[in-house]
Design a protein around this nucleic acid. Sequence first.
RNA 1: CGGAGCGUGGUGUAACGGCUAACAUACCUGUUUUGGGUACAGGUGACUCCGGGUUCGAAUCCCGGCGCUCCGACCA
Length: 411
Amino acid sequence: MRQTQLFTRTRREAPKDEVAKNAELLIRAGFIYKEMAGAYAYLPLGLRVLNKIVGIIREEMNALGGQEVLLTALQNRQVWETTNRWSDEVVNNWFKTKLKNGAEVGLAFTHEEALTNLMRDYIRSFRDLPAAVYQFQTKFRNEERAKSGIMRGREFLMKDLYSFNVDEITHQAFYDRAKQAYLRVFDRVGLGGETYLTFASGGSFSKYSHEFQTVSEAGEDLIYVHEAKRIAVNKEVLNDEVLANLGLKREELVEKKSVEVGNIFTLGTRFSEPLGLSYKDAAGVSKPVFMGSYGIGPGRVMGTIVETHTDDKGIVWPESVAPFAVHLLALFDEAGAVKAAADTLYENLTKQGIEVLYDDRDVGAGEKFGDADLIGIPKRYVLSAKTLQKGEIEIKDRATGVVTMKALSDL
RNA sequence: CGGAGCGUGGUGUAACGGCUAACAUACCUGUUUUGGGUACAGGUGACUCCGGGUUCGAAUCCCGGCGCUCCGACCA
């Protein structure tokens, strides 16, 4: 993409109404736009990153056997009353509104009810199981206090997968595979090194749930990390019994602040029983479906990447989620030779399927460098009169700062 | 929802209760410059968040509202 075509611009100064690093940098670089507290629009650059993250998650969910759907954001009151989650006293962050006929509807903050209810139409027999269904959906949560930029919004994208099994044993097998898939997701988006499988409070059907916590000062959670085992325990469940259970010693653990980027949870029959999602087993006996839920917020993942991948000049995107692979900077000369060569190079790279952001703006070199640092694309190609004379281009790695020269004819 | 702070050109800031609300940046014109936001000249752009009040006079003081941020509680 030619940068002269990009409608967004960078800003020199951080907006005064943001303190969170992720929001500050993403707004300055033109990735997101703040609509109101806790609601951000994704601009061309930001959407490219979000879509990369979504793509990685989708691949891993498909590999797990997940089938993608898109449920509704508008939710039926009756279904939620069945599971006793409609009342504002029980769930305090509902966004509710009314239809023209006066009927109340809610904007979904999660989709266990909706999907469990939907699956009743399709699951009859043990032969219909297992099933794993997921979606990317906007969730609405009326947070009493939005904060931390895109890390905690009132409206945010969420990937939620739900698993349906005949019993706890088969569920557990899927759950373990999902755990591995999650670790792969965080690895692939560039958070692997700082992200820990974390034991957290379970529910009536399991001792623990598992969170995926990325160590960051921007986090809101406190976890106790066992570096060698690559696992952690959430402070909320840290006690002697849990430690003994997990075979951990308190003195081996280090306290860290972290961001919860994912969460997987055994639901058991919490939803299938009240909503009547059951199947007939081989003996013809009706049994409730055993469920699990698995969430990741792509927007929060994006914010967490920014929080953990920056330097004093701007963002440093991991290659897998960068909006473009290459940022081509043309430092124009008077004769126009650089512009002509850069145009050609841009066409060639694009034809090869390389995602290039081409800074073809008629501005000074310093401004191009500054913007490139801020936007944070992994590879910077600099073409100038100097390099063109030698038939070369300069390639600078955003993360390491290492500069190499390459012959133009090799590109 | 408790506590604190803040709302001034697009953005970031300044302005004792008193001149035509200032500066930087961004933007537009022209010249200049072309490897780290170059330099100069000219120009556009603000009912100082909204509504009341005090005062001869309010961006400034008071009351109410709305919005934003931070701390806490809550939460993916």
